[in-house]
């Protein structure tokens, strides 16, 4: 399947999503994401953007509709909260995202951390980090896996300007170099501009694409 000449990596056809005992959260909507494309989900708080990301990640399978991911797709995600293992060092957290604590994974983890300005700090435990640092570790974990599709759930919140630029540079380099596709949730218009993101605006309740 192709999308404007590029191979399609994700296609989500949603006919509805609701939580038990609550009115429908998401209505009928459909979108696709091609190689090297950046799509941003925009909309007011609580409209279902993070839920859509969970569905796209395959973590939430209780929805009506279908999700198609390209065969052999490597998918990574930066969650809204960093979700690091508090009892493992940050290098080990990143390495575990690569499959284990072998020397090779730990070396790659150190490289990923260095690219995000955390070089030489791999021994630190997550509890010793600021939220901004923890977010960069989560991004390093996601990037170290060299994904084809990256899902970012407000990944740049609580980072200072310099760190946001550094993180965006790392992501942008992967988009340009390997054709990384990104599906993101962000409230910051500047982030979206810097990554030349195509915006998908969610409106109403249940939310649909504008």
């Amino acid at each position: 399947m192709s999308l404007a000449g590029k191979s399609e990596r994700l296609r989500l056809c949603l006919t509805g999503k609701s939580w038990p005992g609550s009115p429908p959260l998401l209505g009928r909507l459909e979108f696709a994401l091609g190689e090297g494309e950046v799509v941003a989900l925009c909309g007011p708080s609580g409209c279902g953007k993070s839920t859509l990301l969970s569905i796209a990640a395959g973590l939430d399978q209780e929805f009506s509709g279908s999700l198609h991911l390209a065969a052999g797709l490597r998918l990574s995600m930066v969650f809204q909260t960093p979700r690091l293992l508090p009892w493992r060092s940050i290098a080990e957290n990143v390495a575990l995202g690569l499959g284990g604590l072998d020397k090779d994974s730990l070396r790659q983890a150190e490289q990923a951390l260095e690219a995000l300005g955390l070089g030489g700090q791999g021994h630190l435990l997550p509890g010793h980090l600021s939220l901004g640092m923890a977010r960069r570790v989560a991004l390093a974990r996601a990037m170290a896996a060299r994904p084809d599709l990256l899902l970012l759930d407000e990944a740049f919140v609580s980072l200072d300007e310099a760190c946001v630029l550094q993180a965006l540079r790392v992501v942008a380099a992967e988009i340009a170099g390997r054709g990384l596709s990104v599906l993101m949730v962000s409230h910051d218009g500047l982030d979206l501009e810097r990554l030349s993101a195509r915006r998908l605006q969610l409106v109403g309740r249940p939310a649909v694409l504008a």
């Binding site: 909260t81 979700r83 009892w87 575990l96 284990g100």
Partner: peptide, 21 residues
């Protein structure tokens, strides 16, 4: 459960889940 989701997403093996989570 957030860590569980993380482990699923990063395809932690059963041993890694048991040992590290």
């Amino acid at each position: 459960r957030g860590l569980d989701e993380m482990a699923r997403l990063f395809r932690f093996s059963f041993c890694n889940r048991l040992r590290h989570l």
